[in-house]
């Protein structure tokens, strides 16, 4: 198979060996992720608008009708650890590493807490939780009456807020996540275990990975 738009190791702006040493990914997998990254990034670079990166990321992850959501912005912000409003490849790999099936569970708990702590206060308040619930329900096209939402939040705080101070801190979140592993379901992407099969999705990668694991 000929390739018109090759992506090879020399194109990779970061040192894949260094990234491999500090994440769960192999060098080959990081090269494969670079192909994926370029797919998201290419349109933004060509467009020349820095915010286009955010829009491309949101479009890819959340689809054309979910562009302005609370979670889309929150996930992007957690990937964009340098707060550059741009999706750097190294940050992209490090964040995705947390979603690997083999990543430590504590890393997943930490990341998910940051996701839900939308005001970066170090705890989750009742109002924040309600805001996230309403966003989640809207994104899922589910309608729940306000009193049902309030009841669900009451029950959640009754279980999670063991210190009874009206907020869920990291320690309480850790206990809740351990009691309900399903809360971390979205923190694991099975696709990351099969990155070596990336050629199924991105055939152009066949001839250009130069490292054998």
């Amino acid at each position: 198979m000929m390739c018109c738009n090759p992506v090879n190791k020399r194109d990779c702006p970061n040192n894949p060996e260094s990234l491999a040493a500090t994440t769960v990914f192999s060098v080959n997998e990081i090269e494969a992720l670079y192909v994926l990254f370029k797919q998201i990034d290419r349109g933004a670079v060509e467009d020349g608008k820095i915010n286009k990166v955010r829009e491309k990321f949101k479009l890819k992850v959340f689809g054309p009708n979910k562009g302005g959501t609370l979670f889309a912005d929150r996930v992007f912000d957690l990937f964009d650890t340098k707060h550059a409003q741009a999706l750097g490849f190294e940050e992209f790999v490090r964040a995705l590493s947390i979603f690997h099936p083999d990543a430590p569970i504590d890393d997943k708990i930490d990341f998910s807490f940051q996701l839900y702590d939308i005001k970066n206060q170090g705890f989750i308040e009742r109002e924040e939780l309600k805001q996230m619930m309403e966003a989640a329900l809207a994104e899922s096209d589910l309608n729940l009456k306000d009193d049902v939402i309030e009841t669900i939040i009451d029950k959640t705080f009754e279980e999670a807020d063991t210190k009874k101070d009206g907020k869920i801190d990291f320690e309480e979140w850790h206990a809740l996540a351990n009691a309900h592993p399903c809360l971390l379901k979205n923190m694991t992407l099975a696709n990351l275990r099969t990155l070596k099969n990336i050629t199924v999705t991105f055939p152009e990668f066949v001839f250009h990975s130069q490292v054998k694991d």
Partner: peptide, 24 residues
């Protein structure tokens, strides 16, 4: 949904599907 806690409901939502990154 009433049987779920709030975080279960949120984590089930369509808005948290990073798997879409891998759709070609």
């Amino acid at each position: 949904p009433e049987a779920l806690n709030a975080f279960e409901l949120i984590s089930m939502s369509a808005g948290l599907n990073l798997g879409n990154l891998f759709d070609s």
